[in-house]
């Protein structure tokens, strides 16, 4: 008997998916609000994206095309195994091209290629509570969200400026959604924060261990917190991508040898490959293209 071991479509049973969809709908109705949900055990450890996987499993249909990225890359362990997981349990088409995907599950990046209406971006979130490191009591942070007491968030930014002379928070940079809830955009670099603002794509956030789901519906105001005399700024890079010469994209530092050699390359592998296919060459690009994995 082979069908004993077959899974329900997209691994989760239908009742669980209903429960998660209800949480997602509530999250969409109250942008930025953390909706508690009954997170399930998934066949992967916490910290590997169990929240994102549950959200994806609940919204995916047989016609969807899935892309999974890990720090912008399609070819790292986390991305490859989650992609393989959904290929197996939902038999859906998968892609590495941002433009072709209907669902993009991401760990800590927003793709460089602009997302469009109809696409869904699913974030894997480790710690959904932006106030957590300042206030450890959950009862208190919930009350602070309910009463819109967000002075503490600025205390953190104040500390940054007092210590470093500027706002030194570079990732998980707090944002205010639709003028109401302060939200942790998951540990994406703050470089990606402006992409969340009025994005035409639906953005869903799943935190499996912390059992929270939240959402930013399309065309929602997402404003990064700052001070009047220390406005929000994104990271800038001195040099373009070493492989595709792209500018104004987020770059990763890659160590080349043990003599201090290094290069900066696009963190978004799909974006980099597309540019190289179109003939862009950085100063360290090989003469001939290797075929993409």
């Amino acid at each position: 008997m082979t069908d004993i071991a077959t899974y329900n479509f997209a691994y989760l049973d239908e009742q669980t998916k209903r429960m998660i969809r209800r949480a997602i709908l509530k999250g969409i109705a109250i942008p930025g609000y953390q909706v508690p949900f009954a997170s399930r055990e998934m066949p992967m450890p916490y910290g590997w994206g169990t929240g994102g996987v549950q959200v994806t499993a609940s919204i995916i249909g047989p016609d969807d095309v899935l892309k999974v990225i890990d720090q912008g890359a399609d070819d790292t362990t986390n991305a490859v195994s989650i992609r393989a997981f959904f290929k197996k349990v939902a038999n859906v088409a998968v892609t590495t091209e941002t433009a072709k995907a209907t669902i993009v599950q991401t760990r800590h990046r927003i793709p460089e290629h602009p997302l469009t209406s109809g696409q869904v971006l699913v974030y894997q979130v480790p710690i959904p509570e932006p106030l957590r490191f300042l206030e450890s009591r959950e009862t208190e942070t919930r009350k602070m969200h309910a009463l819109e007491e967000y002075g503490l968030m600025h205390v953190k930014l104040y500390e940054d400026i007092a210590r470093h002379g500027r706002i030194a928070t570079t990732y998980a940079y707090p944002v205010k959604v639709e003028g109401r809830y302060v939200m942790d955009p998951s540990p994406t670099p703050k470089f990606d924060n402006p992409k969340m603002h009025r994005s035409p794509a639906l953005q869903l956030f799943g935190a499996g261990r912390e059992k929270r789901i939240y959402a930013v519906p399309p065309f929602t105001e997402v404003v990064s917190l700052d001070f009047e005399d220390h406005p929000f700024e994104v990271q800038t890079f001195d040099q373009p991508c070493a492989l595709c010469a792209a500018e104004n994209v987020y770059l990763d530092e890659v160590i080349l040898d043990d003599h201090g050699g290094h290069m900066f390359v696009c963190s978004d592998t799909d974006h980099c490959e597309k540019r190289r296919e179109a003939g862009h060459r950085g100063h360290l690009a090989p003469e001939t293209m290797e075929p993409a994995q």
Binding site: H154, Y158, I161, D226, F227, E228
Partner: peptide, 14 residues
């Protein structure tokens, strides 16, 4: 000292 000021909406670091 600044926390209360920020809690009532002061947003100028200086």
């Amino acid at each position: 000292v600044g926390e209360r000021l920020m809690a009532v909406g002061d947003r100028h670091y200086g």
